[in-house]
Amino acid sequence: MDAIEVEDLRKTYTGGVAALRGISFSVRSGEVFALLGPNGAGKSTTVRILTTLSAPTAGRARVAGFDVVSQPREVRRRIGYVAQASGVDVTATGRENLTLQGQLFRLSGARLRGRVDELLDLFQLAAAADRPALTYSGGMRRRLDVAMGLVHRPEVLFLDEPTTGLDPESRSVMWKEVRRLAQGGLTLLLTTHYLEEADQLAQRLAIVDGGRIVAAGTPDELKGRLRGDVVSVELADRSRTAEAEALLRGQEEVAGVMVDGTRLYAQVGHGARAVPALLGTLEKAGLDVAQVALSRPSLEDVYLTATGHAYREEGEPAAAARR
């Protein structure tokens, strides 16, 4: 059975801003699924609808077998939600936070106390358990967030940008946690704007851009769709980018060209063989090349091909020239 089914989900805010323009995907039970995209793409909105926090304008979504609009109580009982903004009550201790969360899921007595202790140990918070969360580091607070999402043993866990703002060390701790949770059979939906994170953690992923899903599949499937290599070129004279684009497009071995600002990306069958020819062509036309790089297709290129603009991990993608 699918743990999450989303069908043509739409959300338009009052004032006419369309955050979701028809999103469909499904997540199998026990799977780690990532929604990848830049800020403002619609990832958090999707998660907010799936966790019953926000009402969709149109479309249908079921989580753990229940409709998020008509059966929100059933959904809430079965999900854990770790929001992008930490939901930790900083005036309370880690233990108090976990205990209240458990109480709201109607756990009590020795069972709740045992579960709280277990999670404090599991997330290495036992030593700080009785200190106000105000004194926690960013990584500790994030771990407490995840622990709170798990207190009632949910069927589906939503992790909205679990590593945003964490230092690299805390990030790798979080990755380890996610992998361990995945092994326990939990269904995990995570959103991220880090390509590497989706690549590393997700069994399947969907790339979200401008409120739509532009590509979906396993990381390998997505990369496999782009055959060959990518040559990226930056010119010394940035004003002549358009000229270079036309030249590259005319080359036989070039399958496609993408321009992002002053950088050109050419998709070629065999990189090492194509580079000298491409550089020769540009030089002959009097275009000095400042930088050239060759790469295997990465999720970044998948993103580029799917959306027509290069990936920006921070902030909005730049308005880019389309093909």
Binding site: R48, Y81, L104, F105
Partner: peptide
């Protein structure tokens, strides 16, 4: 939001 996502 964290509270609203629970059955409270």
């Amino acid at each position: 939001d964290r509270l609203l996502a629970t059955p409270v």
